[in-house]
């Protein structure tokens, strides 16, 4: 109950923030860019189960770039709300358990990630309707909502590891640049580890978890990467909470 109250308080703070605008703009970018391509090549592309194909093909740019970047940005932006306005003192002198404050923030991050995934799907749907208006012969099959949700859930679980690392960094560094810089550098290291160094360590690298199932040769291990992601989340959330609780100066 107390955690829910703290969570509600966190979500209220998101109103009119860059995180919300970013969620909409970033989610719209991919589908509308691909719309131009699809409009040209649609007749050749979507033959069998066109709806599900359309939604699943939208997963690749999401998993490789959009989602990791969004997670890096949203973790930083969400924590910056407190640092920018120097509001930590008020939060920490209000009657909330430190664990509730901490978890409510992490849940707010996860809510924003889900909101992003669903908005992305919404825009994919809109682009599908536009395509259908131009090419009515397409998209006459059923929409498999379950498969779409399953796909999103898998992406979200794969992103848990990365979001907990970035959450920890954003909580640890008061400035905006450090967690953002580390996050972007961390993401760039994933393709280098995969294609340049060809190291198997990449399979344990949180910034690569969302990317790996999209890479030939790794696709079959999606469930394993989801487990790695959950374990990473547990480890980094524990570290982050211990540091949050024991920090000498709060606020």
């Amino acid at each position: 109950m107390n955690l829910l109250i703290s969570f509600r308080s966190e979500t209220l703070k998101l109103k009119r923030t860059l995180s919300v605008y970013l969620c909409i703009i970033a989610a719209a970018f991919g589908p509308f860019m691909s719309l131009l391509e699809v409009m040209d090549e649609a007749p050749k592309m979507l033959k069998h189960q066109p709806w599900i194909k359309h939604f699943l093909e939208g997963r690749e740019p999401m998993a490789i770039a959009l989602l990791p970047f969004y997670i890096i940005l949203v973790c930083t932006l969400l924590m910056q709300i407190e640092y920018r306005d120097k509001t930590w003192k008020q939060v920490l002198t209000s009657p909330q358990k430190l664990f509730d404050i901490f978890m409510a923030k992490f849940l707010a991050v996860q809510t924003m990630i889900w909101l992003f995934l669903l908005t992305y799907m919404l825009f994919l749907g809109i682009t599908a309707f536009i395509t259908e208006a131009v090419h009515p012969e397409l998209f006459d099959g059923p929409i498999n909502v379950f498969a779409i949700l399953q796909n999103n859930t898998q992406l979200w679980i794969l992103g848990l590891g990365l979001s907990s690392v970035q959450f920890w960094l954003s909580l640890r560094f008061k400035n905006f640049i450090a967690p953002l810089g580390i996050g972007i550098a961390g993401w760039f290291l994933s393709p280098m580890m995969l294609f340049q160094f060809k190291t198997s360590i990449v399979e344990y690298y949180p910034y690569a978890f969302t990317i790996l199932p999209e890479i030939p040769g790794h696709a079959g291990k999606a469930i394993t990467y989801q487990w790695y992601s959950v374990i990473t989340m547990m480890v980094f959330l524990t570290i982050a909470f211990v540091q949050f609780r024991t920090s000498k100066v709060k606020g």
Binding site: S9, L12, K15, D85, T87, K89
Partner: peptide, 22 residues
Amino acid sequence: VEAPSLYGHLTAKENLEVYRPV
């Protein structure tokens, strides 16, 4: 404590609403 701890992007009512249920 020291400077006012307020969320600049929220109105006066919204700032209070953040803490009201707490």
